[in-house]
Design a protein around this nucleic acid. Sequence first.
DNA 1: TATGTTTATTGATATTTGTCAAGTGTAATT
DNA 2: AATTACACTTGACAAATATCAATAAACATA
Lengths: 187, 187
Amino acid sequence: MSSLYEQNPSLLLENSEIAEGFKKIMVYKKFTKGHLLCETGNICDHLYIIISGITRMFYYKENKDITVHFCTEQETASVFESYVKREKSKFNIEALEDVEAMEISFFDIENVLIKNPKFERFGRLFVQQLHLNLIERINDLHFHNAKERYEKLLERKPYLFQRVPLKHLASYLNITPETLSRIRGSK
Amino acid sequence: MSSLYEQNPSLLLENSEIAEGFKKIMVYKKFTKGHLLCETGNICDHLYIIISGITRMFYYKENKDITVHFCTEQETASVFESYVKREKSKFNIEALEDVEAMEISFFDIENVLIKNPKFERFGRLFVQQLHLNLIERINDLHFHNAKERYEKLLERKPYLFQRVPLKHLASYLNITPETLSRIRGSK
DNA sequence: TATGTTTATTGATATTTGTCAAGTGTAATT
DNA sequence: AATTACACTTGACAAATATCAATAAACATA
């Protein structure tokens, strides 16, 4: 598989040198359900590679709690734009279950990349994968009505419906809990 | 400015070695208004760095022409997921004006990165910038109603309203031309 | 288990946005 | 200039989704 379209950056971690380089800066962490891994107004200084559990990213709009993203096993939770641009996060990240994760700090990644430019490839693939995921998400939001969005999500991430309160799924789908309930009822 | 949050990858092109590496694989191209730089069903094999003119990415949903993205001077047009994953594009890219662009092929980028791993940093920053733009876009789509989306776009990219037919802006905002017309009328 | 709290469902109604149709304006072409 | 095609606007109505209120179900905790 050629470098530009290697989709899964974790493949590169089989290269033990790169794996070791990153493993050195990872810290094992546990968070209890309800804990905020990142809070509005703070700069998101860490990435969290989820080992177990599930998180959601959310914010408040006119007192309504709106979820914009979920992360679960093998995925990486962060407020990317805050992390990269060093600006205050508009979002919170909350543990919806007890969460185990490997934490990596911005500054440590920084140093690894400076010392080992060859790790940049991993960085690119990592960001590329984030980007591909977001393209899929935006295409879903843009091209489909409420019911289609629901069905897509049910097909793609059925586990969310087992693990996450429907109200969060509703706001993630950009609909009200009432509308989600009616969509689900009409089956 | 430190490497991870250098936002504008073009800064790196001031490093003449990297600039030269990429310049070698760029080809100057001209397209007339209406030309399709990428067509549905084909793999998008090239990036286009726009020098002048403007493009839109669009597709057909139930015979409706829906615009998902615009690119203008200094920006890079491509169907990223087709380009990266080597899969058939779901989108067309159309020149809305006569367009001058630097064309770069997938395979040439591939080779440059393989021969010069130090160029990976540029690649990462490039993808990172794409990603930050998309985050902004999705936040707008997700968090705002029709009128707010219109106002955001007017504020952020006023030139689009000078250069692009309103019907394309309407579908980009995920509303009908009639709704856009009414929003504009109510001022 | 009992109690209180949160979450989910259901119904009635309101609002937003879309659809269809007609008409006007504008630009390109003959 | 007349003709055509396309873009835009406006109005009447329809459909999708939201809001508000009431209730039921599930969950948490004493």
